[in-house]
Structures are given as structure tokens and as C-alpha cells.
Design a protein around this nucleic acid. Sequence first.
DNA 1: CTGGATGCAAATGTTTTGCAGCATG
DNA 2: CATGCTGCAAAACATTTGCATCCAG
Lengths: 161, 161
Amino acid sequence: MPRPSRIPEQVLELLRHGARHAWTMEQITSGLQDAGHQADFSSVWRAVERLLRGRAVQRVALGDGAARYELAGAHHDHVRCVHCQALAALDCVLHERDLRAAERVSGWSILEHRVVLDGVCPKCRAEQGPEARGSRAAPPSEAGLRATGEAPAGRRARARR
Amino acid sequence: MPRPSRIPEQVLELLRHGARHAWTMEQITSGLQDAGHQADFSSVWRAVERLLRGRAVQRVALGDGAARYELAGAHHDHVRCVHCQALAALDCVLHERDLRAAERVSGWSILEHRVVLDGVCPKCRAEQGPEARGSRAAPPSEAGLRATGEAPAGRRARARR
DNA sequence: CTGGATGCAAATGTTTTGCAGCATG
DNA sequence: CATGCTGCAAAACATTTGCATCCAG
């Protein structure tokens, strides 16, 4: 084989021990660079692609237009704060029996699932007021669709989409 | 008011009666054009944005890099075939009680949820073989990650991401 | 007239690929 | 000394915005 393919390992290392649940490609790249590894974006991209194919990493779409990657296995779902865009992991909220039921009803075989919840984090609920609580159906105006705050853990500057 | 703002209405009409569950921006645009409406992409984009703000339409991320839009309300989850990329709607598989439980455990207020299941549609399971069934954890090689087939209902030519 | 909607074009951001070089087995 | 990983650059895509224009009120 050619070069010992360090980047995939470095990516795994980062995903295992980094302080984040789901990483954008850019976050992975700069994460590696911060760790002292010289890593080109496209090399990282290809490494992640390989890891995806090898089922070591999975892609999650949080609905904000940026693809995130996280370790496969240790399954967890995600909650995103509609105010500050904070992201947290949750123990799986979808039960096997519900998946089985869905299989029976639909006729599909279900292999994986990804759940993204939109909500309000405890911090924002405390700060920005209790009016964000409870109203599950249709909040009055357009609050939250274009959240203004910034995420705690340094997300990208521009809130796309 | 200015021009009678026909595009948002046309978009809603399309989403209500079109033969699709979730539409990409491009699908909406060409759908309107096929319906005889002259619709510029950016005008459609802004119309959808308005509909999003007005809570008439919601965005769903299926994880393939293209944002989809669908009517708000009539909530349903999505299953996507890892072989042929077909997309189907499912009755909600996530129960209120599980959401409440997640709220209690996490301390977040949960407003919305989006579930995307990956699986194998009945057609592909019949055609491409039963080996795709059952193996929930880690399929042998890399089957499905780069599905080769094309979706039944005319999806875009290139399978991006 | 006025203000918002529209169309066209271009900017922005992200993902993906082409290609040459190069380090290991 | 061939293979497949790397890096750099650019292409391909998708999303978003600027701006002049247009039109119902």
C-alpha cells in the first residue's frame, strides 16, 4: 500500500475525543489543523468519504444546509436550539418497536434512522423568556426561523439557509 | 400592495397537488414552469422563504445535500431507499410520549422533530435481493452508500454528496 | 406615487473531482 | 516501481443577495 493513510485515523481520533457531537467538514479540517496535523480540505473530505464507506462514520443532516459527520455506532439523536443554534446529543428517542411497526405498515426494510429535534435549550429558555415554551404548534410570528444568536461552541459565522 | 404575489400561491398549489412529498427548490421551480407559470428561480426561492416564515411550508433535510420543502401541517416522516433513492412518506413514527420523555431527560423544550429513515423499498428488496434485509448493524461492504440506481419519480441526474 | 414582488445576474458557501507528486510496501 | 494517499486548484452545485424594474393599490 501507499502512504500509511494517516488522515483517516486522525479524523477518527478527532471524532472520538473532540468536544463536539457532529462535525462539519470544515470543522474537521480545522480541528485537525489545530491538533497540529497538516490536513488539506480535500484530503479530509476523501478520508471521511472512506470512513463513510467503511461504516466508521455517518453523515447527519441537521437541516441547516451543512452536512455533519459523527462516529457511527454510539447512536444518538440531535436537538438543535432554534434560538442559539446550539446542538446537543440525545439518547435515541426512537424505539425499535416503532421502527418495526413502521416496517410492517410501509413494507420497507429500515436500516438506519436519523432524528433531529428542534427546540429551545435550557439556557435560551431561561434567558429569552418562557414564551418560547409550550407552544408546540404554530408560534405567533416567525420567531426562531432566523435565529439571531450564535452557538456557544463557535459555529460558522454566517447562518446559512 | 404591490403585485398580487402569485408565486407563493402557485407554490402552495403545487405542493398541495403535485405528485411528490418533498420538493427541492429546483423541482418546485420546474414544476411551476411545467404548470405554465413563468417562475424565476430566485423568485421561487423568495416565495418559499416567505412561506417558511409564515409557517405554511417547512424544510426537511434528507441528508443528501439538497434541501426539500413540503407543506407544513400534515406531518409525516420520510423513508429513503438506499438503493434507488426513492422517497416515501410515513406516518409519524415518533410518539408524543417519547418526546416528552426526551424533554424531561434533556431539559430542552422540543418544538418540532424530523425523522429520516434509511431503508430498502419493497421494489429494491424484491429485485436486488434479500441480502439487504435484516442486517441492521453493519452490512459487509459498502452497499448502499453510493446507490447506483435512479429514483422512480425523476430525481435529479447526478447523485450528489 | 409607493412599496413590495419579480427577474436577471452575480456572489457566497459547500461539496466534489482532476491531476501531478510522492511516500510506502 | 506500482499503488493509492495527498495537496492544490478548479469545477460543479446549491443557496442567497443586489439591483433595476414593474405593478396593484
